[in-house]
């Protein structure tokens, strides 16, 4: 687990506090539900598996219905449970959308950076998801950045501009990521937590076209 050194720290802090009564040593826990939606074959499930289990599988497996995974992060006396829900991109699973969006604190709208059509469908996904959940914090995430950089420059510029326009319209953070190359995966969820708890984050933004965008302060 990536956070194992931190866990040790956690344990150490416990032993230091032996004299403090039982009640004050207890960990506080928070749960955050995150929904992933977007067209088929974008990499929603891959992103989730990558973040929760730290591994990436080249082969494509179609998501039937919805997937659900949990990652528990222990930080000192706080336990954060991220429950991530991922909806199959095919149209036939649209009736399971409420399952994923209801009570979600964050909805990540995902598109494939190499397929413009998936970005265009975001409009419809956003409309549908907002129908069920009007309060969730939206995120716009482009996947397959590692393939995106092989596209001709003009395509990259067009998609980037288009994505920025969408993000502005949704007032969402915009992040480009690559699951296979571990780019902006951990940062994405850190930014999500900073938005959820309204904490000022010091993670540097990435703004240049051609680089994996990480825009969350001013869209």
């Amino acid at each position: 687990m990536p956070d194992s050194p931190r866990r040790n720290q956690h344990r150490r802090s416990h032993s230091e506090q032996q004299n403090v009564p039982h009640s004050q040593r207890e960990t506080n826990s928070v749960a955050v539900k995150i929904g992933l939606i977007g067209d088929a074959q974008i990499g929603k499930t891959s992103l989730m598996v990558k973040y929760v289990e730290g591994c990436y599988d080249e082969n494509y497996t179609q998501t039937l219905g919805a997937n659900f995974m949990e990652r528990i992060i222990n930080i000192r006396n706080t336990q954060i449970t991220l429950s991530i829900w991922d909806l199959g991109g095919e149209k036939e699973f649209i009736n399971m959308l409420p399952l994923v969006t209801t009570d979600a604190v964050v909805i990540i709208f995902m598109f494939d950076l190499t397929r413009k059509s998936t970005l265009n469908s975001i409009k419809e996904w956003y409309r549908q998801a907002r129908g069920f959940n009007k309060t969730a914090i939206p995120f716009l995430v482009g996947t397959k950045y590692d393939l995106f950089i092989d596209l001709p420059d003009e395509d990259q510029i067009e998609i980037t501009n288009q994505a920025k326009k969408y993000a502005r319209a949704m007032s969402a953070s915009l992040i480009f990521s690559s699951t296979s190359h571990s780019i902006n995966i951990q940062k994405l969820f850190k930014v999500i937590l900073s938005k959820v708890f309204d904490i000022k984050a010091t993670i540097p933004e990435i703004v240049n076209t051609g680089e994996p965008l990480l825009l969350y302060q001013s869209i």
Partner: peptide
């Protein structure tokens, strides 16, 4: 306490990316 814990974690410079 939760907020301060999380904010410390978010702004740690190291991550696995």
């Amino acid at each position: 306490k939760i907020i301060s814990d999380i904010s410390g974690w978010i702004n740690e410079s190291a991550d696995d990316d």
